[in-house]
Nucleic acid binder design. Structure first.
Lengths: 102, 102
DNA sequence: TTAGAATATGCAAGAGTTTGCAGATACGCA
DNA sequence: TGCGTATCTGCAAACTCTTGCATATTCTAA
C-alpha cells in the first residue's frame, strides 16, 4: 500500500511534469476547452495538444465531453487545483528565499 | 511570468516523479535522515539513494546539514507536504471513483 | 439532397534528448 | 585504512516533438 501510493503519486506527478500540460490545466480552471482552442491559445500543433491531453486523460486528470465534431476537455477532480496552488506557494517561498539571500 | 511559473512547476513535478524520491520525502516528514539510513530503509544501493537525493537537492526540495562524516537531509519547505497530501487526496478520490463504478 | 472540401481529433512511427540504474571510482573525515 | 557520500560512465528505457495519415463531422455549392 505504501509502495502503491508512492507509485501512484510518482505516476501522477510525471503526468504533470510538462510545461504545456501545466499551462493547459491552469487554463482549464475557467472551464472546458477543445483541442483546437488549446492549440491556438498556446500556439502549438493540434497533434501536440492532443498528445499532451491524452497523457492527462490516461491518468484521469481530465475527462472529455463530445459535442459534434468538437471534444471538450475539463478537469475531473478540482483537488488538482489545490495541488497546483501548493506548487505556486512553494514557488513563491522559493523566490522569497532567493530574495533574502541578497 | 506565466510561462516561468509553468516551467517551474513542471520542473518541480519532474523532480517528484519517481517512486523512491516520493518515498524518501514521506520518510522525511518525521525528521532528517542520512544517505545511509535511507539506503537501508528502502533497500537500495547508497549510490542510488545519493543520486535521488541529489535530484531533490538540485531543486532545493531538500537541504543538507553536515555532521562529521554524515550528511543529514531534510525538507526545506514544509509546503511540500501539503502538496503530497493533496496528491493523496486525489488518490483517494480516484479510488472512490473506481469503487462507485462497481 | 448529395458529393466534395474543410475542419477537428486521434493514432503511430522516427529522430533527438533525457532519465534511471549499476558498476567503478574519487573524496572527506574519523 | 575504513566508512559514508558523491560523482562519472555506459546502456537501456522513456519522453518530446514532428510528420503523415485515418476517421468523423460539418459546410457548401450544385
Amino acid at each position: 500500500m505504501r509502495q502503491q501510493l508512492s507509485d501512484f503519486k510518482a505516476d501522477f506527478f510525471k503526468a504533470l511534469a510538462h510545461p504545456l500540460r501545466i499551462s493547459i490545466l491552469d487554463a482549464l480552471r475557467d472551464g472546458e476547452l477543445t483541442v483546437n482552442e488549446i492549440s491556438k491559445h498556446f500556439d502549438v500543433e493540434p497533434a501536440n495538444a492532443s498528445q499532451q491531453l491524452a497523457v492527462l486523460r490516461n491518468k484521469n486528470i481530465v475527462v472529455t465531453r463530445k459535442e459534434g465534431a468538437n471534444v471538450y476537455y475539463f478537469v475531473s477532480d478540482k483537488t488538482i487545483f489545490k495541488l497546483l496552488d501548493a506548487a505556486k506557494e512553494i514557488f513563491n517561498n522559493h523566490l522569497d528565499g532567493v530574495r533574502s539571500m541578497l
